[in-house]
Design a protein around this nucleic acid. Structure first.
Lengths: 137, 137
DNA sequence: TTGAATGCAAAAAATTTGCATATTG
DNA sequence: CAATATGCAAATTTTTTGCATTCAA
């Protein structure tokens, strides 16, 4: 936790209560859109934080590698703590359900494109679309 | 081409000149955002087509499986013809470059999650983020 | 102190929707 | 002719920006 302050300060940034709350919200939610983060932050009892601050906070934290985001579905960037367990998201195109599988399932795939293209893939929180088991039947 | 009309009619939809131009635009561009499609459609000499029609057209075509979309970067759904060569996009987080590798590179990966979760992944045009060869050095 | 961050409010983008009119099948 | 699509304009939604004020370091 104090680590957060360290990372920010090391880059001339500051740890404000708002940012601390953004991180806490993400820790509790796992994944969340800026909107959802705002809602969660507002739900912790304290004063609500304007969306603009949420956006700027997430942006600052992402620049420092504390959080990152992916696009699980249509229009919604979902943020998560970088430390959050690495996994790939399986997004069902039919029912919308989102399942997860450990990122290790893609190890081979990652190695392959690294070898063939020199591309260092980061499959953490990668979104894979398709149809889930239930919807297939 | 006439096939397009068939698919639409088979579902009670209609082939309008606008939709034909949308498909032509995609064929020429490969991938494109709704905005880019509109620009291309407008560049073909004919009258410009309002964005709302582009959106509705893409939606209708996607529902019939003629086109589909993915999110390559931050805020931009990119559409492409379903028939367009299957490949996975390698999006460089550093320079923004987008490279492609055949979808077959993910065969093993797809098989794995199918076996473990019964999830039928469609990696066509899947976006994989990371750092490209040049930016790594 | 002093520059970074917040809060608001207003501006931009990006989509979506209502509806009268035009068109396709 | 009947139902689907288009065009436009207006309404939403989502994200960004300007700025005076507050606050962390």
């Amino acid at each position: 936790m104090t680590d957060l302050a360290t990372v920010l300060r090391a880059n001339g940034r500051r740890l404000t209560p708002q940012r601390r709350r953004i991180v806490e919200a993400l820790a509790g939610l796992g994944h969340a859109t800026p909107d959802a983060v705002a809602a969660q932050v507002g739900a912790d009892g304290g004063a609500s934080v304007p969306l603009s601050t949420i956006y700027r906070g997430l942006e600052a934290l992402e620049a420092l590698g504390v959080v990152s985001h992916t696009h699980l579905d249509h229009r919604a960037p979902t943020y998560h703590l970088t430390g959050h367990a690495d996994h790939v998201h399986l997004v069902c195109r039919a029912c919308g359900r989102i399942d997860e599988v450990p990122a290790s399932a893609a190890t081979e795939f990652v190695a392959q494109i690294s070898a063939s293209r020199g591309f260092a893939a980061d499959v953490t929180h990668m979104a894979v679309h398709g149809v889930c088991a239930e919807c297939r039947s």
